[in-house]
Nucleic acid binder design. Structure first.
Lengths: 133, 133
DNA sequence: GCAATTCCTAGTAAAATGGTAGTATAATAA
DNA sequence: TTATTATACTACCATTTTACTAGGAATTGC
């Protein structure tokens, strides 16, 4: 039941982008350095956030990344799902992997409730909330 | 963020013990068979529940396991923590592994909140609740 | 053209997961 | 007392996942 480094670093990267936002693009090199993550690993993580449509990017010299929206408009749930994948605590609950025994599974609704508790929490917090602390 | 088979099977084993309770000891062989788990793997899992003090056991012929208390008196949280270990979503939050940067970690209280959401939910549900569905 | 940057894909060591296997110990029934 | 049935304990192992590293192609600004 652990969140992997991908999810944890993704959140840190998003926070870094929010805190250092000056309108210009911020290079991964800076972000990675500030957060003590290797540039190469950061690349993979930020790529997932980018593919999810959460960033604006520019290649080439003076390129980099910046946030697409205001920090209030990102839920941490979205950030974690983009980087970690589905947050469902058991595979039966994942979006595409529906369990065939779902109907007569005695534990199903318990796990469904846990899934809801987790997602409700992470969706109730915005990036701005995390920064405010 | 997945619950492992240990946690899932532990819950199933506890439910099986509750549903088939007739005052006598129930052998692992039966439990394992009913739940489609190997006897040997079940052994490891039930051993954790036993060490946590949740069962009464008897060795030898006609031996086996039975619940120690009423199904209402077990929280699923206890069962999962006994089988899965700490449910903390990040290691910094584990009971003994306290993070030194805790104070100035911008994400700490967010994860703390997630930890609370998870534990509050699983502790709010008893074994009896799961069985009732 | 060259330096700085993102984008994409492959590889890899270490750890965790999900088991199997063997043996010792205990209780009971014959 | 011996065979049988069970738990208790410990070691082992294959597969998968995690947490990276590495290399190179494409793009842009100067």
């Amino acid at each position: 039941m652990k969140v992997s480094t991908k999810g944890r670093y993704a959140l840190r990267i998003m926070i870094d982008l929010a805190l250092n936002d000056n309108g210009k693009f911020i290079s991964l090199k800076e972000i990675a350095k500030r957060n003590g993550i290797s540039v190469k690993y950061s690349e993979q993580i930020i790529s997932m956030l980018n593919k999810a449509g959460y960033l604006e990017t520019a290649r080439g010299n003076n390129g980099g990344y910046k946030l697409n929206r205001k920090p209030e408009e990102y839920s941490v749930g979205d950030i974690l799902r983009a980087s970690e994948g589905d947050l469902a605590p058991i595979t039966c609950l994942e979006e595409d992997g529906q369990c065939s025994k779902k109907g007569d599974c005695i534990t199903f609704s318990f796990w469904e409730g846990l899934d809801r508790a987790i997602n409700d929490y992470v969706d109730s917090k915005s990036l701005a909330d995390v920064i405010k602390g």
